[in-house]
Design a protein around this nucleic acid. Sequence first.
RNA 1: GGGGAGAUUCCAGAGUGGCUAAAUGGGGCAGACUGUAAAUCUGUUGGUAACACCUUCGGAGGUUCGAAUCCUCCUCUCCCCA
Length: 376
Amino acid sequence: MKFNITANDSKSNARAGIIQTDHGTIETPIFMPVGTVGSVKGIHAQDLTDHIKAEIILGNTYHLYLRPGIDIIEQAGGIQKFNAWNKPTLTDSGGFQVFSLAHRRKITPDGVLFYSHIDGSKHLFTPERVMDIQRFIGADIMMAFDECTPYPCEHDYAEKSMELTHKWLDRCCTHFDNTEPKYGYNQTLFPIVQGSVYKDLRIKSAEKIASMNREGNAIGGVSVGEPIDLMYEMTEIVCGILPKDKPRYLMGVGTPANILDCIEMGVDMFDCVMPTRNGRNGTIFTRNGIMNMKNEKWKNDFSLIDKESDLFADQQYTKAYLRHLFTAHEQLGGMIGSIHNLHFYLWLVKEARKQIMNGTFTSWKSVILPKISQRI
RNA sequence: GGGGAGAUUCCAGAGUGGCUAAAUGGGGCAGACUGUAAAUCUGUUGGUAACACCUUCGGAGGUUCGAAUCCUCCUCUCCCCA
């Protein structure tokens, strides 16, 4: 993997860059649609490339390991062959499931014992095992195995957890460096900064992660329910420590406004379930604001879903029709909501990139931020 | 023609003397969703000058301190047998 910075914003820490992988290039800042079980819910691979213009998507180690299982993915020839997405992929390590499935796991110094949410079976995830699984899945970017701490979280616990994550990181790196990719293309490993909402821990963790000298770095343990101001404060501190010449990935963030704010702090990569989950549930993000398509007010609004968008769905369907689909619980409603939101998210980061390269990012942001944040 | 069952708030459907403006679903309305156990979850859903009052359980009367619940008549619906 290679990363080159194309442009630095003169008025902020925002930057535009290019990541090169064996599955193609990624222009940053970028938003990565989440495809947990090998599928961006409700979206064809072809729509991801042709309409949404996604450049990289996520998969999840824990979920893919449980189903279909790494043997099936290996037989398929890796995740990109299996799900027909032959562009870059990033797999999360299962660290988020340590948080989200906290009631179904036990943390030990060696790793995490998971009780499958599907059939209750026991599975031990050690840093080494997680590296092996991600080798089998075959994503271009693999994530270190970490503990994503909850919010709120006591300083004492956050510190111990961070130290455990750091120990696991050393093991991840060692094992990663001692193993080979399985499918003939390169994989890289991103370590993850933890430290909850504590400045001292975040600084310590960011220094540790920077010292590992990997090809890219991630900021985790955010967007778990903490106030947005705290998330921003932590992100800003960490971005100041992580090396400038490597991509910074802010995990699980966020709203369109969060993404612009964090691009300004120097974040290059984002992922979030929000565009797909909210889209599936009736919330639509547009450059003029956020709409709840289930609301009665759209009942007889026969204007296009988004007249400023060039997405086919936004130009084909009306708000009244989309509301009808949601109220009738038609699958097409969730599909249109998802494709629309992903298209918007990708438009947003690509536009941000243009503005950075044009030297107009901050002024553009100050105009668009209030518009995209309002509810209409 | 004979026999039987039933009519409850937008719908379906509980309730069979006071704890009932009335369970539970659905529908309606609104909200939530941030490295996806989520095409999910939550709230709300008679009216009003609203911690109270008014109207409501097919219609009209009646019994009772008190009725959706008991009695009488009426109207309508459904099922079975001829």
